[in-house]
């Protein structure tokens, strides 16, 4: 980092100027934060993942690769793949539902825009767990939705919705939808109307104007939304426990069990965690290095 800064010394562009001591001072809290809460925990996790299991939990500082060999077991790989699929479906559903909403909010008159944004944020005022349990009340056999459907005669038997994979996806989409809407909204809000008009003037129909102009211009928001939904959805296990009945383990459940379940296998849990971190980092790096073609 320092190397780069000095090599640019003397440059004329603003971004190439040497950082002043004041700038370092202002950035210091951020660095401290990143070191304390990102770098240090990741290093601890890395060390743990190369240790042996302690009898009462914890680790014995004795080097081994065994935990990573265990991660490669088909059982855990299958669970990993399924978790990725669940997250992808969630991300896609959030995108399909969230984009039109974000677009509508972003193009609404200013006064209405704030009200609509507020509506998106309101669920955050209640604990995520309580909102998830509320879905139990709605979806259960003798629950709200089933009794309404029975009343209006759409079904004759209670429809089994709770404790199904569909309920898990529903819960995940419900939880993460705002994380898709908000970043896309900020992109849409900045969208230059003149460019869209220009597209129409040059003969583009609504579809082409959308795919050639609007989507590329809002792509930073879309990318941010996808990351903000996909990554946490992969790790979230509470929704799976509450709405899925814990029937199909997600990778998050497996990791949790290594620390809080009967196996007490911290090193293995750490190895699973490290595998996820590395996979994410690789995916981010790969998408980041692809040349942008417009």
């Amino acid at each position: 980092m320092r190397q780069e800064l000095t090599s640019f010394d003397g440059g004329t562009a603003i971004r190439q100027r040497r950082a002043s001591p004041m700038a370092w001072l202002l950035a210091a809290p951020l660095f401290a934060w990143v070191v304390a809460f990102v770098v240090a925990p990741t290093l601890i996790m890395l060390v743990y993942s190369l240790c042996e299991r302690g009898t009462l939990g914890g680790v014995v500082y004795h080097f081994t690769w065994e935990n990573y060999a265990a991660v490669a077991d088909p059982t855990y790989l299958n669970i990993l793949v399924r978790s990725v699929v669940f997250s992808l479906v969630t991300t896609l559903a959030c995108l399909v539902m969230g984009y039109p909403v974000a677009f509508y909010i972003g193009r609404a008159p200013e006064a209405r825009r704030n009200l609509l944004l507020m509506l998106v944020m309101i669920p955050f005022w209640t604990s995520f767990l309580i909102r998830t349990y509320a879905w139990v009340t709605i979806l259960k056999s003798e629950g709200l939705l089933n009794s309404v459907l029975l009343q209006v005669g759409m079904i004759t038997q209670p429809f089994e919705m709770l404790y199904t994979p569909g309920a898990v996806i529903l819960g995940l989409v419900y939880t993460f939808l705002p994380f898709m809407i908000l970043p896309i909204y900020t992109s849409v809000e900045k969208l230059d109307n003149a460019l869209i008009e220009a597209a129409f003037d040059l003969g583009a129909g609504p579809v082409r104007a959308f795919s050639k102009v609007i989507v590329p211009m809002t792509s930073p928001g879309i990318t941010a939304g996808i990351l903000l939904v996909f990554v946490p959805a992969l790790g979230l296990y509470a929704v799976n426990d509450i709405l899925g009945g814990g029937k199909v383990d997600m990778i998050g459940n497996i990791i949790e069990n290594q620390f809080k379940g009967s196996a007490r296998n911290w090193p293995f849990g750490a190895a699973l965690g490290m595998t996820l971190v590395v996979a994410f980092a690789a995916a981010l790096w790969y998408t980041g290095r692809r040349p942008r073609t417009a």
């Binding site: 669970i79 399924r82 379940g261």
Partner: peptide, 19 residues
């Protein structure tokens, strides 16, 4: 049961994933 807990955890995880 000491280390056998790991074997139990693996067995049940495996069967749940297949079920």
């Amino acid at each position: 049961i000491g280390d056998s807990a790991v074997a139990i955890d693996k067995l049940v995880t495996d069967l749940k994933a297949k079920g």
